[in-house]
Amino acid sequence: MESKFYEKDKLLVLKVTSEIDDHSVQEIRRKADYEMERYMPKKVVFDFDSVTFMDSAGIGLVIGRYKFANMIGAKLGVSNLTQSVKRIFDMSGLLKLIPTVELN
């Protein structure tokens, strides 16, 4: 996972660069929480642009980070959902809770 913090907007972008399953999610979760605590952002965006595989572990990941973001007073969004990622999120109803945002 690559992370980038934009001081001006207090925006933290977390770009997932691996497949997301029960195995890889542990490291992604750990890093994401670490970066959120480190920067104390106002906005956090998960970028799925380079995710080539995701199963239900991705749902738990995003909902868990949504709760964590709430706890530190940040808003969470998701971005660049590929067809297959979107399909999994749609099934869980997660996108009713978490907005899809554009990254530029």
């Binding site: 999610v25 979760r29 239900s56 749902i59 738990g60 990941l61 099934m91 869980s92």
Partner: peptide
């Protein structure tokens, strides 16, 4: 508690 979503 393990962040499973029950969607498998």
């Amino acid at each position: 508690n393990l962040e499973r979503s029950g969607m498998g």
